[in-house]
Design a protein around this nucleic acid. Structure first.
Lengths: 218, 218
DNA sequence: ATGTTTCTGTGCCGCCTGACACATAAATAA
DNA sequence: TTATTTATGTGTCAGGCGGCACAGAAACAT
């Protein structure tokens, strides 16, 4: 569907990627229109014509972010064969992404607008919803582990999801604080050290339910 | 030591508390001078005369914050008799503080300026230093536990501190996301479920010694 | 009383913000 | 060609920002 009028002189997706980079590095409020025009290589009227507003541009950037960076999270949770491995790989891959020097440290959805205030509440609420979705994905994966038998049947899936999503969010702060990949991996290892006590089906930790299932070994 | 000139017409400490409340609720950048003048009940020249600048006012507010809200953290780490109880109580009390409806949700040092950018880098770096101090306090407490014998001698104190400070920071995000106290307590319980694997002396892991320990339960 | 010091309120500064009007340029459609 | 549509760059808008000059007010010392 070639346009009728004068064709756009810039690549819309490419410019969106540039905008994402700025938002990721500086956050939403601290990113000014001139930051965006400088990074995207176009003037502000072109931004408004192509994306609508700073806020809509940001939300498009978030969508791009979840579709690219968030892919690893969803894939790890979907494809690993046990809940334990799923959560482990999910945390490890996010840690690796947060520490990747090719991109800003930490997660856009955690850092770009943590506090909803007048000027950005729509954006901040949007990001909070993204975080809630990740939390729910973890809960779903634990529930699936219960069905599959690799998680104790009476495990508290919402509580486990709450815990691991808190760790995930904490990793973003930690990464921005300059902690490099080995440190993030230690945090992940610490979080996974809780797994047996929280979710392992073996009776060796707390409950005297008797039967020994498979030992999760990773 | 009564002043020589015209006495100040407002209570400096009281106004600082009001400023802290605004910074805590809105963050540093999103708090404007007019937000401050409205909350503190004074005009901006009085703020500049009494505190120097918005940035210096914020740093004074942070100092007040760490002296008051941070007191519980230091006290828990100092006074509990084992490292495990120290970390447990520290997390629990912070969770309770984050969920306290009388104050803004979460921790000022985590939420007020998570990203250092041009306009606020001094402030953000200051907060990062506060976070690093808390992390180091945890590490020191684990080291003391090693000396006291309630933590395994070969435990990795820096890694343990990294993990628990990540959880602590994650609690702030979670609290701002609307998770209430029971949810935060579940996160804390999840984190403490890792303790034995990370730090318990080998004897108490192998043998179920029959609960002379305090059960971390909220 | 007079001078000195300090705080207060009014008013304003230059700067930057997000947003857009406008005329022009460049494509297609007739 | 001419008309229509769409994108572009220039320029600018009203408003808010942090910060402060200034003059007056209120305490002190002498």
């Amino acid at each position: 569907m070639a346009g009728r009028g004068r064709p756009r002189a810039f690549d819309r997706d490419e410019a969106l990627r540039k905008a994402l980079g700025v938002f990721w590095e500086r956050g939403y409020q601290a990113t000014s229109m001139s930051d965006l025009t400088a990074a995207m290589g176009i003037n502000s009227p072109s931004i408004y014509a192509a994306y609508g507003s700073k806020e809509k541009l940001f939300k498009e950037a978030v969508t791009l972010y979840t579709a690219t960076e968030g892919r690893y999270t969803r894939r790890a949770l979907d494809e690993q064969s046990t809940a334990r491995e799923a959560v482990t790989v999910m945390l490890q891959e996010n840690a690796a992404a947060y520490a990747d020097p090719a991109t800003p440290a930490g997660c856009l959805t955690v850092l770009a607008a943590p506090i909803p205030v007048r000027e950005n509440s729509s954006v901040a609420v949007h990001l909070a919803r993204m975080r809630a979705e990740v939390r729910d994905l973890i809960r779903q994966r634990v529930d699936r582990g219960i069905k599959d038998g690799d998680v104790r049947p009476d495990a508290d899936a919402p509580a486990i999801a709450l815990f691991y999503s808190a760790v995930l969010n904490g990793l973003s702060i930690q990464s921005r604080d300059g902690v490099a990949l080995p440190g993030l991996q230690q945090t992940v290892a610490g979080a996974m050290a809780a797994w047996d006590a929280l979710a392992a089906p073996s009776a060796s930790v707390a409950e005297p339910t008797g039967g020994t299932f498979g030992e999760p070994e990773g």
